[in-house]
């Protein structure tokens, strides 16, 4: 029973490749979102970005 289940979940090489590509794409999108939020934050702060409380 267990071995049958593990056989059913075994990924083929093609599926592993596709999963890897999807993971890379998700990583790139997340990185893009971080960059976008960073840039918008800087833009919104404008010249105030240089104001430091110290």
């Amino acid at each position: 029973m267990d071995s049958g289940l593990s056989d059913a979940m075994q990924l083929t090489d093609e599926e592993k490749k596709r999963r890897r590509t999807r993971s890379i794409a998700i990583g790139c999108v997340l990185a893009g979102i971080v960059v976008l939020f960073y840039l918008v934050t800087i833009v919104r702060l404008g010249s105030n970005v240089m104001n430091r409380p110290f």
């Binding site: 059913a8 979940m9 990924l11 599926e15 596709r18 999963r19 590509t21 999807r22 794409a25």
Partner: peptide, 12 residues
């Protein structure tokens, strides 16, 4: 036949 997602990035 399979319970695993199989789509490519271009499918999405």
């Amino acid at each position: 036949e399979r319970a695993v997602p199989n789509g490519t990035v271009s499918d999405f």
